[in-house]
């Protein structure tokens, strides 16, 4: 997995609560058997005026001028500012794949759905929770200042504004280490293969009917 250490990135504001994974990447794009290439269809139904299908040339589709990410000032954004319960709905990992493929490396909001939150960490995308009043202020500052950037320092667990104001965020210690080092979790788990085998053998002896 790609490591995440620090980021100094342009911020884009998506001022909606309960943004679900169907909105992040609509179902017709889930037919792909690849992990990449989802970026052009991120937020497809909000982003384009026509209906998107796999295989279309997205570069010639008409963009919805009212959708925030289509404003030129947010081109190249790497940090997405969000609201409550971002990523609710399905378990599709295509959602963080699409965010990542578009260029987002970090999300800042008040809360995330569990499965989506977990999926982000597996893909080097950092979902950050900050208190609602701080997020409110970041939205206001972002809207008022074109070219608004934030710095994120994962080791220090800080989001840093341009005036130096730092907001500390919580992150699970193990997930932090994995992200900082870009570790492959499967490799880590397989270091305990003997323990897994021993557990499996004792479980099989006690409950053989689970093992048919």
């Amino acid at each position: 997995m790609r490591a995440f250490t620090t980021l100094d990135g342009l911020v884009a504001p998506l001022d909606r609560a309960n943004v679900d994974t169907d909105a992040i990447i609509p179902k017709q794009f889930l037919k792909s058997i690849q992990r990449s290439g989802f970026g052009p269809n991120l937020f497809d139904e909000w982003r384009y005026l026509d209906h998107g299908e796999p295989g279309m040339d997205n570069s010639v589709r008409k963009l919805n001028p009212d959708f925030v990410l289509n404003q030129p000032r947010y081109t190249g954004a790497q940090i997405l500012l969000t609201r409550d319960n971002f990523g609710c709905g399905s378990s599709r990992e295509h959602a963080p794949w699409a965010l990542d493929d578009y260029g987002f490396r970090a999300l800042i909001g008040t809360s995330y759905a569990d499965i989506f939150f977990n999926n982000c960490f597996k893909n080097g995308v950092l979902p950050i929770c900050l208190p609602a009043d701080v997020v409110d202020r970041l939205f206001a500052t972002c809207l008022a200042n074109e070219g608004y950037r934030l710095k994120i320092d994962l080791a220090a667990q800080q989001v840093i504004e341009s005036d130096g104001t730092a907001h500390r965020f919580d992150v699970d210690g193990f997930r932090k280490e994995c992200l900082l080092n870009g570790w492959d979790e499967i490799g880590l788990t397989l270091r305990h293969a003997d323990e897994i085998s021993a557990f499996e053998a004792s479980r099989k002896a006690a409950h053989p009917y689970y093992f048919r």
Partner: peptide, 15 residues
């Protein structure tokens, strides 16, 4: 429910 990375993790490690 789990994401695809975890599907792979379970396939590989049963955990």
């Amino acid at each position: 429910g789990i994401g695809t990375s975890e599907v792979e993790h379970v396939l590989a490690t049963q955990c």
